[in-house]
Amino acid sequence: MTGSDASPSFRLAYVPGVTPTKWVRIWNERLPGVPLTLVPVSAAEAPDVLRDGGADAGLVRLPIDRTDLSAIPLYTETTVVVVPKDHLVAAVEEVSAADLADDVVLHPLDDTLGWELPPGLPAKERPATTADAVELVAAGIGLLVVPQSLARLHHRKDLTYRTVTDVPQSRVALSWPEEETTDLVEHFIGIVRGRTVNSTRGPQAPAQRKAERPAKGGAARQKPAGKKPGGTTQRGGSGTTKGGRSGSPKGGRGGKPRRRS
């Protein structure tokens, strides 16, 4: 591992549709002295941004060119089809690729599903971006198949989406330059993998936290046990009865035995 926690900041690139909010919050809680800067990038340019040093790590969509880059897959997204609200597809919970065979399905140039030929009929031209494709769906030109997060990102009141089965899915991964696995990168890896602050790779070593704790039991172990004022002693010994009267152990008779006549 190279680098140092003394780095002034940590730059995290992220592609459209990915929401790093939770991880950024945990970072700020654990490393308040190291500001995290978000760097929005397109899915296509993310690998080059990492290689060129534009970010320390990035949340990207697989597959990517892994040359000189490390990557840890984080999760797989559901694939959906974006349709007008009055389209027949909107009446069902999910559809298959075959159900879209008679519809024009748009294939934007920034497509992230990695397929050469989407289902359905091809459009005359490929839209430049997913945002452009969404506008064409709203205009009734065709449908659009995308990861669910992108459908949410480009949400419109006149459009909806439904799950599509038997089609490629988008995988989101954390990636960084393999020669730049710094301490801060290790910290962020721990966060996205769900390691707690007590993890051995967390910001503070367990041995240090243990040394800061007071000794178990504290001064309470040094205090001798004593009788409680006005209380009873252990079973079998004499003590003070309820009401303050002197008494003998339960089941016994106090005083000198009587002489039988």
Rank of each mutant, 00 (worst) to 15 (best):
T130R: 00
I64S: 00
P47H: 00
T196Q: 01
P84N: 01
D52V: 05
G226K: 13
G226Q: 12
G120E: 06
A123G: 08
V145Y: 02
T165F: 07
P119W: 11
A6Y: 12
A97N: 02
T67M: 06
G33M: 11
L136W: 15
E45D: 00
E125P: 02
N28T: 08
T79N: 05
P73V: 05
K157A: 13
D111W: 08
P47T: 01
P8N: 04
V24W: 01
L12H: 02
P40K: 01
L36H: 01
Y14C: 03
G3W: 03
P257W: 08
T241K: 14
A98G: 09
D56A: 06
V172N: 01
A90Y: 07
R201N: 13
E179V: 13
L38Y: 00
V92H: 14
L136A: 10
W115P: 07
T78D: 04
S70L: 08
D99A: 02
A6L: 15
V105P: 00
V92W: 07
G243R: 09
A98N: 14
V49A: 07
H155W: 15
V80R: 03
A225E: 11
P249L: 12
K223S: 11
F188D: 00
G202I: 01
D5H: 15
P118Y: 11
S170F: 03
D65N: 14
G3S: 04
G239H: 13
L62N: 07
Q208L: 11
T232H: 07
S7D: 13
R156A: 12
G114Y: 01
L12M: 02
R201E: 15
A138P: 09
G247V: 05
P224G: 05
L159P: 08
K242H: 11
K85R: 14
P63C: 05
D111S: 12
H107W: 15
G255N: 14
V15L: 09
L62T: 04
L136C: 07
G236H: 09
L62H: 02
A123Q: 05
P35M: 07
A98V: 14
G244P: 02
R66N: 10
D166Q: 15
A123W: 07
G54R: 01
V185I: 13
R152E: 14
